[in-house]
């Protein structure tokens, strides 16, 4: 349904916009003047100055896989993150956990888990969609590499970034 937005009725002075133009230009020159004397500038000189210690808990840096207190890899290769990933940065190859493994009852784990950081857009959908609390966006933001291959984080690298996370739900422990 079309909505008719009521236009404000302008006086002649407003219609020629000259006063608003002047007002706007006074604002910008005000900023200019203050910035000229170093006031109000918010830019941080990046490589020298960093904000790392101030990063909030919800900061969305590089996605990484985590293990829990029992040293179990949380990911069960459900591939929901691969599905939700808007730039299709995630590639997972699942495999069955061999029966002699301590966690054989979980049955499934990723054989390969690769995130192409050249593609990743740090949206955090993977973390949001994960039913196993296995993938988290950490505070690493400076991801560099000299080739495209180097920008692909494999499973080992992802666990390295992710580390151990405690206090997560351990639903698999209840299984026989």
């Amino acid at each position: 349904m079309a909505i008719v937005v009521k236009r404000p009725k302008l006086t002649f002075g407003e219609k020629i916009y000259l006063s608003s133009i002047a007002k706007g230009m006074m604002i910008t020159i005000g900023h200019f003047w203050r910035a000229l004397f170093g006031k109000g500038t918010v830019t941080m000189q990046y490589p020298e100055e960093k904000w790392d210690e101030n990063l909030p808990e919800y900061y969305r840096g590089a996605p990484a896989l985590v293990t829990d207190e029992q040293d179990r890899e949380r990911c069960v290769a459900c591939q929901l993150c691969e599905f939700i990933c808007p730039p299709r940065a995630i590639t997972i190859t699942p495999e069955e956990i061999p029966s002699d493994d301590q966690w054989a009852k979980v049955e499934k784990r990723p054989q390969k888990f690769e995130i192409d950081m050249a593609r990743c857009i740090y949206c955090g959908f993977c973390q949001e969609v994960c039913p196993e609390q296995a993938i988290f966006l950490r505070k690493d933001y400076a991801i560099t590499g000299v080739s495209r291959d180097e920008m692909v984080h494999d499973k080992k690298k992802l666990y390295e970034i992710g580390g151990v996370r405690e206090g997560l739900v351990n639903k698999w422990n209840k299984l026989k």
């Binding site: 069960v76 459900c78 929901l80 049955e107 499934k108 039913p131 196993e132 639903k171 299984l175």
Partner: peptide, 11 residues
């Protein structure tokens, strides 16, 4: 019914 959906092929 278990909460197996993440590893269940039928999901």
């Amino acid at each position: 019914h278990p909460l197996d959906c993440p590893i269940c092929d039928q999901a």
